[in-house]
Nucleic acid binder design. Structure first.
Lengths: 190, 190, 190, 190
DNA sequence: ATTTAATCGAGACGGTACGTCTCGTCTTACT
DNA sequence: AGTAAGACGAGACGTACCGTCTCGATTAAAT
């Protein structure tokens, strides 16, 4: 019976969060400034979100985490596919805005591991699916051993991307190629 | 002529920081509580440290980051050495205190990337050295291809450890073995 | 065709106001709590009353202000009549509920003098009438000088009652007798 | 050992309170505006005063309550003395600032009777003393009966002054004279 | 032994943000 | 049209910390 929740206010808050995180970092975000910049009262924020972390979480889930929207190609050459994908993902993480968002996600996770892990899982899910899917085909075709755990492999890439964003040391194409090559060939002698 | 800096006060602050971070998380640490619990005045803290991050940094450098104090064994079996080391490192990161310290480091890095990256480098340095050293011997012996970039490989392990601590999903021995096995064998077809 | 104003809601609000003022004081009364406790929506209150003060005003006019409902006796002995009446009025102001209501009236008057004075006049009117009436008879009978301003005299009693309620120092019979005696005899030398 | 309390800040707050009460009424006073206008932080106010009422109380005790600073004259004519004094006191209560301060005191008393009564007593004390002193002399000289309770008489005047300020109906000289005359002569027939 | 100057504890200060409460307005669906 | 329900922008509440600033009191080296 009462007035329904204002979708406009909700979007304004999420937008303000994205903007604020991008230009200043997660810690610097203030509910008070968020409210002001979204043209919304503080109470409206507290009515709908339990914490700053939850707002960022919703903002990230609503938008796309940089890097998680890049699909793994499906050509006949597995190594080329992985190289192209990992290079693209790393490049995507190079601009300041992406680094800021990724760092904000990490900051949330460090502060509120429960929510953070949930977000990480949801945002990393497509990546994991793509990698797993591509490897499954490679196994079928006989390019890859049958006992390979594609999930762990995907996690390796995700961990490297996350750590790179955290330290701000974006991986250049030469480095991503080296990682993929090592992964493909293994380190065992010929 | 003047009274020298009180080493006692310094240690009390660093201890208080370690205790506080361990039981409550980095964000929850307050200079005010730090001062109270260390039995030190706020001014003494502000006189000697520029920020909360700097105190944690000094505390971490003074002690040992959990996991960074575990050496890579040097037997004849490279894979066994890596398995043992990575499993031990992961186990080290399993207890609550270690996770808290690792997360605090990550939180600092997300907030102050400059200081954070410096800390990461310093604390990860021994790990990188051990891995690089062990692989160099393996290359010499002919167990490993000569074109392998040991630094990137070390970073892969470090990234996985960091990501595991962040999400609180400690890797169990089965998982660490799988990672090492994949790394060793590569994923290429038999 | 339109639905008429709900008398039930109106009474519920006035009752809630009386209850709230009695147990917590006028300042502590909240439109929001009033609405909840009356089982009425806020809008219904705002539609019909311009202010919290107006609600209290209506509630007071609807009921009876403690003390204003006690008539002056009409025996042959003026002093005895006044003693009996003033003692009864003071006694009436002794219980917690009466003090609370009187204080609420005072608080409203201090905040909104216009409305407050109107309320004071209306609620004090019967008192003034009784005193004036009784004195008029006393003048007729020759008990009282013809140049006495009964209105001012009534106001003196009302002011003392109000001040007593405000400070919470109820006048005991000995005190009320003293006041009446002084008033009657005057302070001139015998 | 720490820095001593700032007397400047204290005075600034009390001044701001006096100004705010005078122009807007006690209820309209906000700690936040008080702090801003005094150029003081909110915490400084909360550090030293438990409530808005306490600030007003200190402000009133520090200054002089309008009316409480007017002494009763000591000529040979008691009635003339009382007339002059009560007229002066009533006139003092006529200007807007005095009414505002008196009303603020009443509002505080209605809200916090304990503090309010204490303030009333302290502020009314000189008035009571003067009246009692003047009457004592009158009794000595034989102008006044020995059984008169000067305290109750003083309270009558104070109550009338308070009630007049509350309702905003200042007593004009004709009215004050009538009150004094009635008091002096009593209402008994010649 | 005295001087001297930086350190220390304590905590007041001007601020900013917190999360909560209430205000008075508004929107919706029900009666 | 009146109502219950409750979302909304606004803004004050009282609290917690921030980083800066006095304050004596302490303390070791340099007189």
């Amino acid at each position: 019976m009462p007035r329904p929740r204002s979708e406009k206010a909700r979007q304004a808050v999420l937008d303000a969060m994205r903007t604020a995180v991008t230009g200043g970092g997660y810690e610097a975000v203030t509910i008070e400034r968020l409210a002001t910049e979204a043209g919304v009262s503080k109470q409206t924020i507290y009515r709908w979100w339990p914490s700053k972390a939850a707002i960022l979480g919703e903002a990230l889930l609503e938008g796309t985490l940089p890097g998680s929207d890049i699909a793994v190609p499906h050509t006949d050459d597995l190594e080329a596919d992985l190289r192209a994908w990992f290079a693209a993902m790393s490049a995507r993480l190079a601009d300041a805005e992406s680094v800021a968002l990724a760092r904000a996600l990490i900051a949330v996770t460090a502060t509120d591991p429960e929510l953070g892990t949930l977000l990480n899982d949801r945002l990393a899910a497509p990546v994991r699916e793509w990698v797993v899917g591509r490897l499954a085909r490679a196994v079928e075709v006989g390019d890859v051993r049958t006992d390979v755990d594609a999930g762990i492999l995907a996690d390796q890439f995700i961990a490297m991307g996350s750590y790179a964003a955290l330290t701000g040391r974006t991986l250049n194409p030469a480095q991503t190629d080296a990682v993929v090559a090592a992964t493909m060939r293994g380190i065992g002698a010929g």
